[in-house]
Amino acid sequence: MRPFLAILAIALMGVTLIWQVTDGARAVTAEGARRLHAVERTPTMPSPYLTDMSGKTVRLQPDVGGVALVEFIYTACPTICRYAGDSFARLKGRLAAAGLAKGVRMFSVSFDPLRDDPMALSDYAETHGADGDIWKVGAPAVTDLRGLLSGYGVTVIADRFDGYEHNAAIHLIDERNRLVGIFDIDDIDGVVEAIRR
């Protein structure tokens, strides 16, 4: 009897534990958890100042009553950030076509401020068609970088080609600077749909 009760108790505790740490079996990866928490807990995001592609200082936040779309890049990136740039460009077109562009700000934020000076940022902006009005490309001060990335839950690690690997995504920020959704960078429909609501 005793082993049976012990097994029952351990099974109950174990299942509860695994249930707890996976948010009810919904998120087994850190990235999954981050996306789930964005929707469920809408944490407030840091809004540091960025230096944008024209050398001006802008704040990483939506306009009053608007929303912001934020993605993290580095301009020397040969792969996924180019894709992210294209995706932002298409997104901008879609928003304009749907009449949703007003009140939306788009930020491509570099996490490589040492290399990404206004010159590099403006090259990137030009390549992808960022207008500097709705869509700004900018980099935070080096001192703000760590807080910004950990606030968003973005992990950046060096790869073996003098570049970085990071969890790329499109972040939707509401008018109170809260993170309310995280989307795959090719999930343009999802983003448009979320802004519409």
Binding site: P3, A6, I7, I10, I18, V21, T29, G32
Partner: peptide
Amino acid sequence: TNAGGGAGLLIVFFGIVFWMLPR
């Protein structure tokens, strides 16, 4: 309590499951 090793092995099982989660 651990007759047959079942209780202990179940603890091991959950320990391994936890550390197999990428999270």
